[in-house]
Nucleic acid binder design. Structure first.
Lengths: 198, 198
DNA sequence: GCGGCGACTTAACCCGGGTTCAGCCGGGCG
DNA sequence: CGCCCGGCTGAACCCGGGTTAAGTCGCCGC
């Protein structure tokens, strides 16, 4: 997808001052729920989570951003209100930061960049739509199955507790779900093609 | 918000052929899950629901569109795939339809229209974000309280079964939730300002 | 090596919501 | 008027996930 192209454009523009990503330690917070986070963040390397902390102190993960991803708080950027969620690094990461105003200026000057950004926004909107659908229509177990099936690489980089927070259940519940899923895998005559199983 | 303006622009453009909204009966389906729904729908009057039917036959409501709203399947429009959800009228309604291609052309010709549309999309994205947050962080009861508190007018136009489908619970569960909520209202010394209560 | 810590698991118990079925009510129609 | 039908409510029972608490394991630092 067009993300590399967008990155290229961003780097090519000297006024953005992109290119000197800041290093973040594992666990370090990028911005905090309630902050005015009017920046665009480019994750050059690493893994970050965007998450809410509920009134009663629970953590719920909105989404994960993997190497090469773009993130920021849309609400903060456009309404210049405060962000509804926090961002924190799950692995040691490198993140380049661009002020939103400069970013907008760059888009105004460079129609190609603007169009790339719009495509990316479309993509994000579609993913959000899918997420909403899953939360509304699927059980926790079904969400787990789907998550590991479709995001295998990501799932293996995560701690279970964060997968649980993403699915919207407690780690204890996730442990139970996994047992159920594994058990089923076990008692099934291994994929019906017993010998050939990759 | 800028919706009236957008409507005005749409109507002013003769090439769109807007203005002759089609009437829909209560219960009538506008487009169906799985259809290629590459149109933009303008709800002049009435009430429609956008909803999924899950594999096991349950109905889950994604969102309601009220008089003056705009809707369509983004996924169908851009990827020209099939819509993931259906749209049906909850009241007798009048809906004007514009082909997406014509709509895009109009946006290209009219920068103001494009900008209005983007604002609307932003608004929709923010609402979707809130919805995702609620589904992820709130219990069914909390979602119900919030829904009636913030969308009183809408809630009163809906049947309970559709509110239930929107919240993601069965009508039976919603009935119980309502009982709990009402009960609480009852035993509270009426809003602490007993006599003045509106 | 040992103690401590954090992630994960297991088990017991509780509770909210699902399921099923019965009853109630109001509106439409013969 | 009487019937039916669909929406809502109530009650009884079940099940999935939350809660709490104990136990295992691997890792790290002393």
């Amino acid at each position: 997808m067009g993300f590399d192209l967008l990155l290229e454009r961003l780097e090519a523009d000297p006024s953005l001052g992109l290119g000197r990503p800041r290093g973040f330690e594992k666990g370090e917070v990028v911005f905090r729920q309630g902050d005015a986070a009017r920046d665009v963040y480019v994750l050059r390397r690493g893994l970050v989570k965007l998450f809410y902390v509920t009134r009663d102190g629970r953590e719920r993960i909105k989404s994960f951003i993997v190497d090469g991803g773009l993130f920021g708080s849309r609400r903060s950027q456009i309404g210049d209100g405060s962000s509804a969620f926090s961002a924190a690094c799950l692995e040691q990461s490198e993140i380049a930061v661009v002020g939103y105003d400069r970013f907008r200026d760059a888009m105004r000057r460079d129609a190609r960049l603007a169009s790339l950004f719009l495509d990316l926004s479309e993509g994000a909107a579609l993913r959000k739509e899918i997420r909403e659908h899953d939360l509304l229509c699927l059980s926790a177990e079904a969400r787990y199955r789907r998550f590991v099936a479709e995001q295998e690489a990501l799932a293996s980089r995560l701690m279970q507790i964060d997968i649980a927070r993403y699915l919207g259940v407690t780690p204890v519940a996730l442990s139970r779900i996994r047992r159920r899923v594994e058990a089923e895998r076990g008692e099934l005559p291994p994929t019906s093609l017993s010998t050939v199983t990759k």
